[in-house]
Deep mutational scan, measured.
Amino acid sequence: HNGKLCKLKGIAPLQLGKCNITGWLLGNPECDSLLPARSWSYIVETPNSENGACYPGDLIDYEELREQLSSVSSLERFEIFPKESSWPNHTFNGVTVSCSHRGKSSFYRNLLWLTKKGDSYPKLTNSYVNNKGKEVLVLWGVHHPSSSDEQQSLYSNGNAYVSVASSNYNRRFTPEIAARPKVRDQHGRMNYYWTLLEPGDTIIFEATGNLIAPWYAFALSRGFESGIITSNASMHECNTKCQTPQGAINSNLPFQNIHPVTIGECPKYVRSTKLRMVTGLRNIPSIQYRGLFGAIAGFIEGGWTGMIDGWYGYHHQNEQGSGYAADQKSTQNAINGITNKVNSVIEKMNTQFTAVGKEFNNLEKRMENLNKKVDDGFLDIWTYNAELLVLLENERTLDFHDLNVKNLYEKVKSQLKNNAKEIGNGCFEFYHKCDNECMESVRNGTYDYPKYSEESKLNREKIDGVKLESMGVYQILAIYSTVASSLVLLVSLGAISFWMCSNGSLQCRICI
């Protein structure tokens, strides 16, 4: 991952900044910058967002509201009850120091605090018919004063009620008058409520006091790749198909172990950190130390980045220098085999997901714990399936590479015959000098055995068991695999060879 928040398929997220979902939807004055928000790819909250409900109280069923919003990608904020005409018999300019803005008392931008007009609070009834052709999110509140005197001074009615009804919602609220500790300079409380109004449905408000009335509502448009994440990451000019709280993932790998919460087309989250597919040879310690064997393909974004291909070729060293050249036929066979294998694994496992966190309130801790156990169970199954699949494929890959290298080895052996000696570690020792032209003939299969047989015969008789390297004779190393990324691999195959001279070296080696 890149540690950044990015656009998702070209669409920017909605960053709530210092506000949370509650503050944004109710219209906390400190969240005025969010009022123009219309569309987004996903919503970003920060872990310690401080601006929620400015007048103390709870947004009821907040967790369910977050779940609903996680599939919303755009909205239209509109005046559901026009301020100047909807409440002619009531005062609608209630403000509070708890919702101060720029040093002055204020109130929510989407709600109206209705109080008595003169000395009376006549029963009010108002309704709205949803003609938007889509779901409408309606929010309101109920004020709970701290004393009967406060109730009387604001609403005149000691036994007030609030009723809200639609086809799918029907509740009646009565204020709970009680002494409470002071929070944000208030002994009173406000509880906030919401409902989704279906197209064509009607919502009716009736009250004799204590109503925090809707002013603006939201017509919602769903987008199934949307979601809500909690993150401290910063926004950058970048684009992605998959976003996590820790950063964007741009990967076609089937798995990731970065974060379980994802938005967009994302690899499946697994616990494993070692889900690797081999593309090189079986481990040979001396070669492995030099980083030549054991190439791997990573299938977990965050564990290993991208696929690494092994390729086969020849390396030689003689009086004229040293050089490398790919054996294109065996390399292409290996590439085709690995590509098919990788595609097979991805096809089997690479279903892209959006995974969002589930919200539970403080009273639902047991449910949250149960949900976590269920999620953990599914996660263990996914991890096991992934590891088992790759384990089985790896064994076949190792066998496949062994065969490829063996074929190259036999190709060289059949040409050199007794003009060189096998020394048991995949290397041959020449009994004759071999210049670049000679080396090329070994690589392309045109090695002239009779041409060098007499010199080889004489050297075999002279050496008589002495280690060949100390006599200045020449080696050919018969097994060799270097490691390159897919891009470098293609470039390498396009070149005939490249040279690395070893000044004054008397050794001649050709490596497979």
Rank of each mutant, 00 (worst) to 15 (best):
N436W: 07
L408V: 06
Y312T: 08
G323F: 12
F400L: 13
N343T: 12
Q317R: 11
I496E: 00
G426D: 07
L477M: 09
V278M: 02
S497F: 09
G377L: 10
L468T: 15
T354M: 01
A295K: 09
V412Q: 06
V412C: 04
I346G: 02
Y324A: 00
N318W: 05
V356Y: 11
N340C: 08
I263D: 10
S456M: 10
I284M: 10
S485N: 03
I476E: 01
H259R: 01
F498N: 12
D376C: 04
L458M: 13
T339K: 09
I423L: 14
E359G: 04
G294I: 02
F428S: 08
A478R: 02
N343K: 09
K457A: 13
G313I: 04
N407S: 15
V390Q: 12
V374I: 14
L416V: 14
D376L: 07
W311D: 04
E395Y: 15
I479T: 13
G306K: 09
Y452P: 05
A484F: 00
Y409K: 10
V345P: 00
R276P: 02
W499M: 14
M500H: 13
V473F: 11
E395S: 13
L389R: 03
Y449A: 14
D399R: 07
K241S: 14
N336R: 13
N369V: 08
T273S: 11
L403H: 14
N343L: 10
C434L: 09
F353N: 14
I346S: 03
T482G: 15
E393H: 07
E454W: 12
M439R: 02
E368I: 05
E410L: 02
T273H: 04
Q246I: 14
W382D: 10
I512Q: 06
R460K: 13
R443N: 05
T446P: 01
A325T: 07
I338S: 02
K411E: 14
F400P: 10
N503L: 12
V473T: 08
L493E: 00
N350Q: 14
D375Y: 09
E422D: 12
H432S: 06
S453P: 00
E469D: 10
Q328W: 12
Y269M: 12
K329M: 11
L363Q: 05
K241A: 15
N362Q: 10
I423C: 11
F360W: 15
S453H: 15
Q256S: 09
R443I: 03
N418P: 01
M307G: 01
M367W: 14
S251W: 06
P245R: 02
G291H: 09
E387T: 07
M471K: 03
N232H: 13
V412D: 06
S456F: 02
K341Y: 00
V412Y: 05
M235K: 03
N257H: 05
Q352M: 11
Q475S: 12
Y449M: 08
S234A: 13
F360K: 06
A420V: 14
G291Q: 05
P267M: 09
C266K: 06
Y474T: 15
R443S: 05
G310L: 04
L493M: 00
V473W: 12
Q243P: 04
N425V: 00
K417I: 13
Q320A: 11
P285N: 09
S502Y: 15
S485A: 12
V356Q: 15
A478L: 14
F353Q: 02
K365A: 10
E440C: 07
I510C: 06
N252L: 15
Y312L: 08
I476K: 03
T240G: 03
N394H: 08
G494F: 01
A478M: 08
C238I: 05
R509F: 00
V390P: 01
Q507S: 12
G494K: 02
D309V: 02
P245F: 05
N404A: 13
S234C: 00
N394M: 15
N436V: 13
Y384E: 07
W304K: 00
N444Y: 07
T305A: 03
E364P: 05
R366W: 11
M500P: 05
D435M: 02
K329H: 10
I381N: 05
C508I: 13
L379H: 13
V261E: 08
I423N: 08
K268H: 06
L391Q: 07
N444G: 13
T482I: 07
S486W: 06
Y289E: 02
G280N: 03
L379S: 08
G424N: 06
K268Y: 01
N385G: 04
D402N: 10
G424L: 12
S481P: 03
H401A: 05
E454K: 07
H316M: 15
R396H: 14
H315V: 04
I479R: 13
Q317D: 06
S441C: 03
S486G: 04
K341V: 01
S502N: 02
P285Y: 15
K433L: 13
K274C: 04
I300Y: 03
V483K: 00
I423R: 07
G377H: 06
Y289C: 01
L388D: 03
A420T: 03
T240R: 05
W499I: 14
K413T: 07
N444W: 02
N257V: 15
G465L: 11
Q317Y: 14
F255G: 06
K373M: 11
A386R: 01
K421I: 05
W304Q: 02
S470Y: 09
D435E: 08
T279S: 01
I300T: 10
G377N: 10
Q328S: 02
E440H: 15
T383K: 09
Q320K: 07
T331L: 04
W304E: 06
L458N: 10
L398K: 02
V412P: 07
K358L: 09
F428L: 15
P285V: 09
Q507F: 02
L253K: 12
M471A: 12
N350I: 05
F498E: 14
E301W: 05
D376I: 04
M471H: 11
N257S: 11
I335H: 03
G247L: 03
I476D: 01
G465R: 12
T262V: 13
G494T: 15
N361T: 14
E437F: 02
V278H: 02
E347K: 05
R460L: 08
G302E: 09
D448S: 15
N318R: 04
S470N: 08
V473P: 15
S485F: 02
L392S: 08
G247N: 03
E437K: 08
V466N: 04
V442Y: 11
A484Q: 02
K373E: 10
N444T: 09
G280F: 04
K241Q: 11
N252C: 03
C501N: 02
P267W: 04
Y289P: 05
P450S: 10
N283P: 06
E347W: 00
S485G: 12
H401Q: 10
Y409N: 05
M349D: 10
K372Q: 14
G294V: 06
G504I: 02
D309C: 05
F498S: 06
M500S: 14
G323A: 14
I338G: 04
Q320R: 03
V442S: 15
L477V: 07
G323W: 02
M307H: 04
V491I: 05
C501I: 15
N283D: 11
K241Y: 11
K457G: 14
G306E: 13
K358Y: 12
P260R: 14
A295V: 11
I346K: 02
P267R: 01
K417V: 03
V278T: 02
L388T: 10
G321P: 03
T273V: 13
G377S: 10
Q507D: 03
G294H: 14
F293I: 11
K348N: 05
E265V: 05
Q320L: 13
S481D: 07
G504R: 12
K413W: 09
E437D: 09
G294K: 12
N385S: 07
F299V: 10
L389E: 15
E437H: 14
S286V: 12
V390L: 12
N250V: 13
S330I: 05
L370D: 09
E237V: 06
N362L: 13
G472W: 00
K421T: 04
A420C: 05
G294P: 01
N436I: 07
A334N: 08
N459K: 12
T482K: 15
F378G: 11
I249E: 01
L493K: 00
P260F: 07
